[in-house]
Amino acid sequence: MTDVEHPETFHALPVLNLPGPDESRTAPLPAADSVAWRLESAWQGDLTFAALWQHFLDTVDTSRVRALLIGPWWNSDESLAPVVELLAGHADRFPALRALFLADVVSEERELSWLVMSDITPVIEAFGQLEELTVRGCGERIGTTLDLRPVRHTSLKKLRFESGGLPSGIVRAIGASELPALEHLELWLGVTEYGGDTTVEDLTPLLSGASFPALRHLGLQNSEIQDEIAAAVASAPVVAQLESLSLAMGTLGDEGAQALLSGQPLTHLTALDLHHHYISDALVDRLRNLLGADRVNGEIDEVEYWDPEEDDDRYVAVSE
């Protein structure tokens, strides 16, 4: 999986793996609010996530924890549902929590499509002070289910779904949610094989500009219908309020690039991310000339080793 890795920092804090209860340590733990805490139980013998969670509550002043990442958790239960239940059930222990990452897992640990996800709505509802939420995992695949219901949340500023197949129900739920503070929305839509059945019609509320008045960055990326999305974005009212836009990681080709060039002005954008694309050199040059090379993703990397004369099959950056 390209573009998927463990973050070294989260919510502007360095990430620290919490030592397990059986791990020896010579130095005391850092201040609870000085790091982003990462919990993983899957590689620590018979340690269950529930036991690691209790260890976390017992050893760290969780009233000061600002950022939390959930790594591999499946020693005792494959599903993320018990983790969601623990988080929501102990929300009162985390009054300072502002950032949460569900399923900080990379391919060496488990592929996205093999993560057994769950309904994450209870977490959003329980943490009304949350400002940043990242969720990594696919939709329905070998029994896995990632789900979300429409919510009202007045604090959430950044919402990011990293997926090789984001279910259309997630996209529609986001569009039906009330998120007046949302500034950054990033959706990796993925492919149908892994549950990514989102259509352009599903994106209509997001593209209208009416749903999220504070939105300044929109990422609709990693899609096998990237040309169709680009065509819709080219006339979407939301673009006027954006400072940056990403249509990266997908199958974007000349059709989508031409739509962007022929559509509404994009010159107000400070950044247009199109990396991992299938656009011809001539149209790449036109995009650079329109916005300036420094604002079109810097390198605007194309997909390596792809020759349209020999192979017309396009692929997204992250699928399985």
Rank of each mutant, 00 (worst) to 15 (best):
Ala51Val: 12
Phe49Gly: 13
Met117Asn: 09
Pro237Arg: 12
Leu112Trp: 09
Ala176Tyr: 07
Gln221Ala: 05
Asn289Met: 12
Gln264Ile: 12
Leu245Pro: 01
Ser223Met: 01
Thr26Asp: 08
Leu86Met: 05
His184Val: 15
Thr48Glu: 13
Ala259Asp: 07
Leu203Pro: 01
Leu159Thr: 00
Pro167Cys: 08
Val171Pro: 10
Glu162Gln: 12
Leu218Thr: 04
Pro14Ala: 07
Asp46His: 14
Leu291Trp: 08
Phe127Gln: 09
Arg295Asn: 10
Thr144Tyr: 00
Arg288Met: 15
Gln258Ser: 14
Gly169Asp: 08
Pro95Met: 09
Ser246Thr: 06
Thr251Ser: 05
Leu146Asp: 05
Glu320Val: 14
Glu162Asn: 15
Arg93Asp: 00
Arg25Met: 06
Glu255His: 06
Ser41Met: 13
Leu102Phe: 00
Thr121Val: 15
Leu52Ile: 14
Arg141Glu: 13
Asn289Leu: 15
Tyr194Asp: 04
Val233Thr: 11
Ser79Asn: 14
Asp227Ile: 13
Arg295Gln: 04
Asn222Gln: 11
Leu220Glu: 10
Gly128Glu: 12
Arg141Gly: 05
Glu178Arg: 14
Gly143Gln: 02
Tyr278Gln: 01
His55Ile: 03
Asp202Tyr: 00
Leu203Cys: 11
Ser246Tyr: 03
Arg64Val: 05
Glu140Leu: 14
Tyr315Leu: 12
Gly71Ser: 11
Val171Gly: 02
Glu299Ser: 14
Ala234His: 15
Thr121Ala: 14
Phe94Trp: 04
Glu320Pro: 14
Ala210His: 15
Pro19Asn: 07
Arg172Gly: 07
Leu87Lys: 14
Leu18Arg: 01
Thr48Met: 10
Leu146Trp: 07
Leu203Val: 11
Val106Asp: 00
Gly196Asp: 13
Ala96Gly: 11
Leu272Ser: 09
Leu130Ser: 06
Ala230Val: 09
Glu78Pro: 00
Arg98Pro: 10
Glu162Gly: 10
Val84Cys: 06
Asp281Leu: 05
Met249Ala: 08
Leu182Phe: 00
His6Ala: 01
Gly256Asp: 01
Ala99Asp: 07
Trp114Ser: 07
Gly195Tyr: 01
Asp92Trp: 09
Ile225Glu: 04
Ala27Ile: 01
Asp61Pro: 12
Pro167Phe: 13
Leu185Pro: 02
Ile120Cys: 05
Arg216Glu: 06
Ala210Arg: 15
Trp306Gln: 06
Ala173Lys: 02
Trp74Arg: 02
Ala51Gly: 14
Gly169Ala: 10
Leu156Arg: 03
Leu80Thr: 06
Pro21Ile: 02
Gly250Glu: 03
Val65Trp: 01
Ser244Leu: 09
Ala248Cys: 11
Thr59Gly: 15
Gly45Phe: 12
Glu178Thr: 14
Leu16His: 02
Arg314Ser: 02
Asp227Gln: 11
Glu299Gly: 13
Ser319Lys: 08
Asp311Trp: 02
Ser63Tyr: 11
Ser41Ile: 12
Val60Gln: 10
Ala51Arg: 09
Gly128Thr: 10
Phe161Ser: 05
Leu39His: 06
Thr121His: 13
Tyr315Lys: 13
